[in-house]
Design a protein around this nucleic acid. Structure first.
Lengths: 258, 258
DNA sequence: GCAAATTTGTTCGTATGTATT
DNA sequence: CAATACATACGAACAAATTTG
């Protein structure tokens, strides 16, 4: 007995999918049919199917059946749009330009602005004391009315108190982008930034917003962007979360043809 | 009856974990204890635990019990080491420097060099006809004897036939890095590259090499790097796969303090 | 629109195998 | 070897979602 039976069944089905005997979009035999075919109980067949689900090969639709997943065309987000200016992708202006270029219509939901106390990683990223007040600006983004990303930017309150960046407190879009606003009106110029990209299982909010599997099988990308000003101090942390099954990141360095 | 029972049990346990009642590394009650506690059958309790596993909160050890996972310290790989030179992280020389800087010891396994025909995405990335022969150089990488990444680089055969880059065919390391070798001895200089980063479930080879859950619950990062020469033509495609639970990518743009 | 049939989802009980202590 | 704990597998029943007649 090398492999358990549910794994043998899963392997056999996987082979059929990869060989094209079960093409993308086609329906698998029903669970009861598979029971007959492999001489296994329904629970064992379901274990096999669950394995295929976690590997992203099939999906089940209650009342309908089990289907081979279609290949999702992953949308590409460029983290560095222009190596010359170093302007980052994912920010407001560039974000909209990218999306429209692909004949898609972006939409931003209402901003939610809050003031909270920075603790832990957030305080560390902004290099402020634990408990320092920060402004959080949270936004839901859609493409073609499909949920796309959850983004929250954090700014130290000192930008308002000491530098007069009062527009950060208003719950309205900053059309030119907050980085441009801070640079032109407040004298805080972003001279560099650092992105960190990780993957983790989704939480309840993300499962609900992105309409991904409630079993947490689809991970999410989490992009931390810390912006640094002309003095080398961090002045902004932006955390953006994307569903990992429908996105791809690109980084262009040097001369890259389009 | 809003939620099914196994989900209620999972939610309750998740709450205990997040509240710190079940700290990282601690053991959960055994399945039979949980059956008593919640008045559910063992199968239902196991369904609840499976949900926590897929969300990365707990892990089971046969014969021992179920434990709250320790937070993994994710190792950071920088995709752009130096914005001035634009030299990319993840390549041979830079890779070793990064690893040693963190007091870890890198190790490369024996190279495997093959000649194969490019089809589909591979041919498209290198901009060659389907069926063109390419050189593939495959390597397994370790850190502190722990599996770290699987990397395969593809080069068009024309680099050997027309440009005399014969060392690409030898199954030995190119210590200065193949990009440097091609630049200095063959006259193909890399003037830019494009990385694309995606996440997907692991295949059998990756599950075995990285020793990740056989259920495919831990996704893998897949980084495609296409290098372009001074004429804007692609001359190399490198595909690197990392386990997503122990890595994080960084991209530095502009002036970024260390 | 409704009822029946089909298909997957949830839950129980039970038994046996395998890994660890 | 024995005890403990998780892994696999079977059978059964009912619920919920969807399609079909």
């Amino acid at each position: 007995m090398a492999d358990p039976m549910y794994r043998q069944i899963a392997d056999d089905l996987r082979r059929q999918i990869e060989a094209g005997d079960l093409p993308a979009g086609s329906q698998l035999p029903t669970e009861l049919d598979l029971c007959d075919e492999y001489g296994a109980s329904r629970n064992t067949v379901r274990d096999a199917i669950r394995l295929l689900i976690t590997r992203g090969l099939v999906e089940t639709r209650p009342g309908q059946g089990t289907y081979v997943v279609e290949n999702i065309q992953r949308f590409v987000t460029t983290l560095i749009e222009d190596p010359e200016t170093g302007r980052g992708g994912g920010e407001e202006g560039v974000y909209i330009a990218q999306v429209e270029a692909a004949n898609r219509t972006p939409r931003n939901c209402a901003l939610r602005v809050e003031i909270q106390q920075a603790v832990g990683d957030l305080a560390a990223a902004l290099q402020v004391e634990d408990g320092t007040y920060v402004i959080s600006r949270h936004q839901q983004r859609f493409i073609d009315s499909a949920p796309w990303s959850l983004q929250t930017s954090y700014y130290p309150m000192s930008l308002v108190n000491s530098h007069g960046a009062t527009r950060l407190l208003e719950a309205t879009d900053i059309p030119e982008g907050s980085v441009t606003y801070l640079g032109e009106h407040v004298g805080i110029k972003q001279t560099g930034y650092r992105d960190k990209i990780a993957v983790r299982p989704p939480d309840e909010t993300e499962i609900s917003f992105f309409s991904i599997s409630a079993d947490g099988l689809v991970p999410v990308f989490e992009v931390f962007r810390v912006g640094f000003d002309q003095n080398g101090n961090p002045f902004r942390l932006t955390v953006t979360v994307y569903p990992a099954d429908r996105i791809q990141f690109a980084v262009n360095v040097g001369e890259v043809p389009t």
